[in-house]
Every structure is written in structure tokens, then in C-alpha cells.
Computed example of a mutant assay.
Amino acid sequence: MSNDSLRARIESVAEVAANLTNTPDAPKYHHVVPQSYIRRWTPGRKGSVRSVRVDDGRGKLVGPKKVGGIDDFYRLEADDIDDTSTPPLVVEVLLGVFDNLARVRIDELLAAEPGPVTDVEMKADLAMVVATQMSRGQSFRQEQFDLLEYTSRQDPIEHSKVAARMWLSSTGQSLDDETIEVTAAQMREKDRRSLISKDHKPQAIQLMMQNLTKLVVPLITRNWAVYRTQTPLLTSDDPVVVIGGPSTDRRVKPGNAGAAVWIYPIDRNRLLAFFLPDISPQLPFVLDAAETYEINREIVAAAYEKVFEHPDDDIASTITVPPRPIAPRAETVIDLSRRPTRWFESGEPPPAPVSRWYQR
């Protein structure tokens, strides 16, 4: 899809959302993973997927329409939001545009042979899709709630000074008191004008939209490759997984920028991988059974709550991971950045999957 074509579709989103708001057709069950994506793990268009809770192993067969979603998850509504200028369903409708783009582009990837992905337009479109998927789920939403809760406990003037000092330092500017004071004041005014609402849920949705746009360019600049797997893959309610690599602490979530590889299962036997620019995708573009098991374990460990598999597979029952830890209350900015993984209390977390990937 060209930029002009995508822009034209986005321009119609607000009108569509406004018309939907008070109609019986207004979507209430909002998918954190698209229906068309979940259907890639069903036996036929009308089939069901097996949904399995990671922490207790309970599973059931569910149709794609009622799996991987939460009621009103993207609904923008608060006393201080004017629903005539910001329709409550505008984000849900916009995500539908990205979901249609995902369906078309993933179909094209699946029709090609495994190997490097170099088509510029394909990467531009799928970068938007993947960035959206990374930002739309419950994991990211919880991270934003934690950030907002932390910020609400800080003195706004002192907090803005800390943020100003960090930004000035990162950009190589002067750190004298006057510059910090002026920059902090500018940040406070910008935040005041830019916030969509005083309520945390609309703020978290706003941060979601801002985050996905920041991820697109870093994604495009990575080296992409599609791998075929010898045994089936499963997926999850948070299917884009960031892997730091063999030298990182597996007990905390790696940062997106420095992570060796991001992975995204695109169907039962295909995995899309995004490597750092200085890491070349390694032949063969086939993952054997042991490597596929490692990838599936990574997907299960990164899931927020559930994994999804084809009804003929029995993958989830073969993989045991610790419960998802509750992040301790953040007292510093560093606390916010060190998100615990399921391996947080493990003395020996498993090594990063597919060891041959990390050769430079």
C-alpha cells in the first residue's frame, strides 16, 4: 500500500468511527491480535483455535471472533474528551485498517520462499503492522499504566527537570541550571497541551499510538528474513517477541533498540525475524525441531496470558514456564525500564533461542 493510499484510508477513519459510535454494529470486543491473524492457526476459515492459559495450562477451542480480545480495550472515552471531535471508536477503526494491511502483506510473504525480505514497500507496510502489534497488547498497556502511575506520584516540576536533564544530556546540550529550567518548563507546557485526557486509560491509548510510530523506522532498518519450521509454531496474545541475545540478562525484558532479534510467527510454519543491521540472517532458512521448540518456548514465555495453537497440535502442554511476575512498584526511572520476564526469579534462565542467529 502506498503512503497516499494509506493516508486516504486513515482520513476516513474518524468519519467511520463517528458513524459507528451509537449504532448496534459498534464493535465492543476489541482484538489485541487480529481475527485474520488468529485464523492462520485454524483448520479452515470457520475452524477454531485452541486457546491455552499459560499459568495453569487450561485450554479450550474458541472461534477467532471470540479469542485474543477484550471488551472496549481501545475505546477512547472520558469526561474531558469531546466525542464529536474524538469518536470513541477511532482507534479501534484505525487498527482495522492495519489489520487488513497485515492480512494482504502476510499472504504475500507466505506465497514466497523462505529467505531474506528486501522489498522496500513490503517492509514499510509490515513495519507499521508489526509496530502496531507490539504496541496494542496488554503487556504494553500495563507498562504504560505503570509509567502513568509512577509519574502521578512525582512532583511535576522536579520530574520535568529530571526528564529535561536526561534529554539535554542525550543530545549533547548544555546542562547549566538555566537551560534545564527553561527546557523543563517547555516540557511541562507541551505535556499539558498534548494530553488527550486526565484519565489514565485514554493517556495509555495515546501513548500506544505514539509508540508505534517510533518503532517503524527502527524496524525497517533491521535485516529481515522468513524462516520455515520443521515442526509447528504456536502464537500468543503478544506475538512479537524481543530477544536480547546471548549476552543479555534473560531475567529482564530487553530494550527494543539493542535487542539482537525480534520474532513474529506469521503462520503455523513460518516465522518472520528482524535482526540488528550488523547481524546477517543465517542459512539455512529452516528451523529444525530443536530450534522450533526454543522459539515456541520464547513465545510462551513472552505471552501476557494466553497462547493459541492449531487444534491438531499439542505444543503448549509440552512447555512449562514460570508464572508471569508482578512488576514491583517503580520508585525510579530505572525501575520502570527493568521489566521482569518470566525468568526473573530463575537461577539459570534458558539461553537465547537459535544460537546460530547471533553471529556477526
Rank of each mutant, 00 (worst) to 15 (best):
T318L: 08
E158K: 11
F145Q: 12
K46P: 00
E158I: 00
N100P: 00
R360V: 08
A260R: 11
A131M: 03
H310R: 03
I180C: 10
A225Y: 08
P218S: 06
V54N: 04
E291F: 02
Q203E: 14
P156V: 01
A112N: 09
D56M: 02
N223C: 09
S170E: 15
V49W: 01
R324Y: 08
V286S: 05
R329V: 14
Q359P: 00
S170Y: 06
W343N: 07
W41R: 00
T132H: 10
M166D: 04
E189D: 13
G63Q: 06
L212H: 14
R50I: 15
R45F: 14
K161G: 02
P311A: 09
T248D: 14
W224N: 09
P64I: 12
D155P: 00
V241F: 00
L6Y: 06
V300M: 10
R228Q: 04
R7F: 05
D155H: 02
V67Q: 02
G137V: 03
D119N: 14
P323N: 11
A111I: 11
D125S: 10
L147N: 08
K65S: 13
A327Y: 00
L168N: 05
W262N: 11
L89V: 08
A225E: 14
T84I: 04
E158Y: 01
Q206N: 12
V242T: 11
R9Q: 12
L207D: 13
L147A: 06
D278P: 00
I38N: 01
E331P: 02
T183Y: 04
A112E: 10
L61Q: 10
D191M: 11
K65F: 08
D313P: 03
L76I: 14
E77K: 15
A257G: 05
V120I: 05
R360G: 13
T42P: 02
R338I: 03
R297E: 15
L234M: 12
I266M: 07
D312A: 10
E178G: 05
S236T: 09
R268F: 06
G63K: 06
L101F: 00
V93I: 12
V182A: 07
D335V: 03
W343H: 11
I319A: 07
R165D: 04
V117W: 07
V90N: 05
E294Y: 09
I263L: 12
F274S: 13
P88E: 00
T21N: 01
H310N: 13
L234A: 07
V91I: 14
E113S: 14
S280I: 08
S174C: 07
D83H: 13
R75I: 05
P232L: 12
D82H: 01
I326C: 03
N19C: 06
K306C: 06
E15C: 00
A26I: 10
R222A: 11
R45T: 13
D56G: 02
N3H: 09
D4S: 15
D82R: 07
F344G: 01
M208I: 01
P87A: 07
S135D: 13
P328G: 05
V93M: 08
V240Q: 10
L76Y: 03
K123M: 06
P351R: 06
I263F: 08
I196K: 06
